[in-house]
Amino acid sequence: MRPPAVTPRSLRVQLVLFNNQFRFLVQTVQGLIAAAAVARSNGSLSRIELAIGDSSTDPCISEEQERGIIGNALDNGFERAWYTFFGANLGSAGGSNALAEGAETDCLLILNPDTYPSPWMLHRMLSSLRDGVGIVEARQLPIEHPKEYDAHTGDVSWASGACSMFMRHVFEEVGGYDTDHFFLHCDDVDISWRVKLAGYRVVMEPSATTLHHKPINLSGNIEPPYAERYHGALGKLMLATRYGAEDVFENTTSWIRANGDDAQQQAVDDFEARAAEGRIPDLIPDGVTVAQFVGTEYAKHRF
C-alpha cells in the first residue's frame, strides 16, 4: 500500500535552555539540521525556524557561541533562527509558550536541548500530524517511556514534553501550556488532556526517535533529581484537582505525608498554601473523559 501523500508543512523548533552546555546544544542543532534535510527531501517540510530561549540565571552561551550556533542553523537550511535570554527561569512550560508567541508556522516542535534527534524524526513526526492529530510524540532512546500506546493508531494518553510536535493552531486553541499551575512537570500531561478535550488526538510515533541524555542508575532506573520529584508531586496534585480525581489526590497526599521525601513533602505544603490563595486549577467537568490515572502514572504502562 502506498503511504498517504504528505503535505509540506512549516515548523518552528523550540529549545528551552537551563544551564545547558554549549557543546551539547551544538550537537542537538546539528542533528536538527540533518533531520530538516531529510524532511525536506521527503516532502514533509516546507520551511523551518529555530527558536532558542534561555531560562538560566545568566546566559548559558556567550555572544560568540550564539552567533556560531544561529549562523550554523541559517547556513544549513533554517529560514530563521534566534536566541532569546529570558532573564528569568520560566520553566519548560513558560519558556515554550514564550517561544511560541508570534509563530506563523504550521507546527511547533517542543524539544529538550539534551536530546539528539534521528535524521528521520522530523519527517516521521510531520507525517503523523494528520487524521485529527493535535500532538505527536517521538520515542525516546535508549530508555523508551513505558506508557502504553496503540500499536496501530499510535494513540496514547499523553505526549512527553521532551519531544512533542504540535499543530500550532491546536497549541493556540488550548492556550498553550498552563503556566499558572505547571512549571516543569505534568505540564505535558495537562496540555495533552486539554488537546484531547478540544477534540484532537494525541499519538506516539515510535519510528520517530530521539536520543535523550538521561543517566541510568544501577537499579536500571532514571534517577529523578530534586526538581523532578518536587514538580512531579506538585503537578500530580494539580492534575488530580483539575481532572476530578479526588481519590488520586487523597491517596497521593496521604502517601507523601507518610512516606514522601523532602521534595514531595515540600510540594504538598506548597500546594496547600496555593490552595489557600486560590492558585490551584478549577475542575474541568468532563476532564474525567480524557484523564487517566493508573496507579502512580498517567497511562497504563507496559513495564
Binding site: E144, P146, P206, I216, L218, R302
Partner: peptide
C-alpha cells in the same frame, strides 16, 4: 509495523 519491535520490560541490571 514500526519500529518493528516492542519493549516488554524496563532495563534490568
Amino acid at each position: 509495523g514500526p519500529p518493528g519491535y516492542s519493549a516488554l520490560s524496563g532495563p534490568k541490571i
